[in-house]
Structures are given as C-alpha cells and as structure tokens.
C-alpha cells in the first residue's frame, strides 16, 4: 500500500527535516508512526497525503508515485487531522454533505449511518458545530475521514479529546476498518492506542526511523526477562524479582501463597526512550 524509500525533505536550505526514511506498509495493516514533536512525523504524513511536494527519494501509494496522479489517489484516502477542522458556522450534516461533494457519489457512505456508528447525538445534527464539545467535533471529523470509504486512512491522534468510552469506540471502529481491508497509518503520542491497535510501529526521532517492528517483538527484544512476584510466607508479605528462566521448574523459593506474578516487560514508551534517548511529549 505504502512504499517509502530514502525519503528526504528540507524546509530550509542546510536544515534537513527527514534523513532518508525507508519503510513500507502492507494492505490492511495498522501502522503506528510514533515520535516526539518536531521529529518529522507530521512532515512525513503531509508528504504521504500529497500536501507537501519537493521531497527527495521515492514515495509510492497504491503502487503509483504520488507525483503522477495526486487527485486520483486523494479520492482513495481519508485523513483525520490532529484538530477537528470543521466549518463552525455549519451543522455536522452541512459539513459532511459539503466534504462528500468532492468524492464520487457511488463511493460515499451514508452520513446518518456513519454518525450513528460514531455515537453522535442526533439532536445536534442540524445545530452549528460551534455549539459542539471537542468530543463531538472529533466524531464529525472522523466521519469526514471515513466518508469516502477510503482504502488508506491517515489518523493523527484519533482519540485525542475523547472520554474513555469514546476512545474505546474509536479503537473499535479502527479495528473494524482494518477488518474491511483498510490500511491505517496512525500517528500518535498515545502508547495505549499504539499498543492496542498497531500491527507494527515505527519510532521516529530527528528525522530518522530508530526502530520498526511489531509492539510484541519490540517488547521481547527489550525485555530484561525478569518477573516480579508478590507472595505470603509465614504471615509476611514479600516482593521478589527473579529471572523468568528460573520459573521453569516452578516457584524456586519457600512460600505459603503467591499473590501476583508480573513480567517486568518494558512499555512502548520505555522502548522509545531506549532507542531515541527522549520521551514522547
């Protein structure tokens, strides 16, 4: 679906933002693109969505260079921006009808079904967007991104501004899109989203990809293979950290009751800091 080879980009002379990124995203995959502010992830997304030109290297979407048929591939993509960019003087319905008018009618999804799927309050359907909460605006923005039934979906912080139940709903919708065969390029700071949704993640910092793999493999590679055990022995509660390999023959110390066993697996954020030397804020 996406093939990027030696991608470079500079906003100013002598100051390169992207230093030869190479990665590919398969059809139907959810690909996480994680990086701190200023790392080059937005620039990469802008190039992939055809907003930015003047880059170096090769970028192929749908097995075609994006330079050649930009308008044609824009019909096949959906983009959710970090902020809900909508006409605030128009209603959700007017906004969605407006954006739908740019796509072939036969490709467009039913606006009412979309909004229902996104748990949008029907009372607000004809009220101006200026009266909506951030969560409601985010729902309309997601509906806009999904309107054209895209084959490739770019999502930038999709769960930002949503309450926990809204975030769960959005994750469910993203997974359903994947089941339908949609490829998802997910840009986020949210490690929970990345961990739960992504088939593979790429860590980008200073315009370079520092690591790229499945969350599971990244965790395995960076695990210290230890387990933390809480137990009771002779009426006393104790915690001990031991090598997981030692557990092969059972619990290797005297105890009356095991309260919990946790592998000391690193989080994605720990791994990110390990590779890049800085956090994701």
């Amino acid at each position: 679906m996406i093939k990027v080879k030696d991608l470079t980009f500079s906003y100013q002379k002598n100051k390169q933002t992207l230093h030869g990124l190479t990665f590919s995203v398969s059809d139907g995959e959810i690909f996480g693109f994680l990086g701190p502010n200023g790392s080059g992830k937005s620039t990469t997304q802008k190039i992939l969505t055809g907003i930015l030109n003047g880059y170096g290297g090769e970028v192929n979407l749908f097995n075609q260079s994006i330079v050649i048929k930009q308008k044609e591939f824009q019909e096949k993509i959906g983009v959710l921006f970090e902020f809900p960019y909508l006409y605030t003087n128009l209603s959700a319905l007017d906004n969605l009808n407006y954006f739908a008018s740019f796509y072939p009618r036969e490709n467009c999804r039913d606006i009412f079904e979309l909004l229902e799927m996104l748990d949008f309050k029907n009372d607000y359907l004809k009220k101006p967007v200026s009266s909506y909460s951030k969560g409601m605006r985010q729902r309309v923005s997601m509906a806009r991104a999904l309107l054209s039934n895209p084959q490739l979906l770019f999502l930038d912080e999709p769960t930002s501004g949503l309450d926990p139940s809204g975030a769960v709903l959005f994750r469910k919708i993203i997974e359903e899109e994947k089941k339908k065969g949609t490829t998802v390029f997910l840009t986020t700071h949210n490690m929970v989203d990345a961990d739960l949704l992504c088939d593979r993640v790429a860590f980008i910092a200073d315009g370079e990809i520092k690591a790229l793999d499945t969350p599971k493999k990244l965790k395995e590679k960076n695990s210290n293979h230890q387990a933390k055990i809480d137990y009771l022995y002779q009426g006393k509660s104790t915690t001990i950290t031991i090598e997981i390999a030692e557990l092969g023959g059972g619990i290797p110390f005297p105890h009356d009751e095991i309260i919990s066993i946790h592998s000391k697996e690193p989080t994605l954020e720990d791994i990110f800091i390990h590779y890049t030397g800085r956090g994701l804020s």
Binding site: T49, K71, E72, Q74, I77, L86, T88, F99, F102, R144
Partner: peptide, 14 residues
C-alpha cells in the same frame, strides 16, 4: 481560524 483551509489540501479538488 477554523483550520479548514488545510482540509482542502487533502480533498480531490483543484
């Protein structure tokens, strides 16, 4: 102010 100009960058419209 509404940010909608940026949305037009990804729409299939001249």
């Amino acid at each position: 102010q509404m940010g909608v100009i940026r949305v037009h960058g990804i729409l299939p419209v001249n």
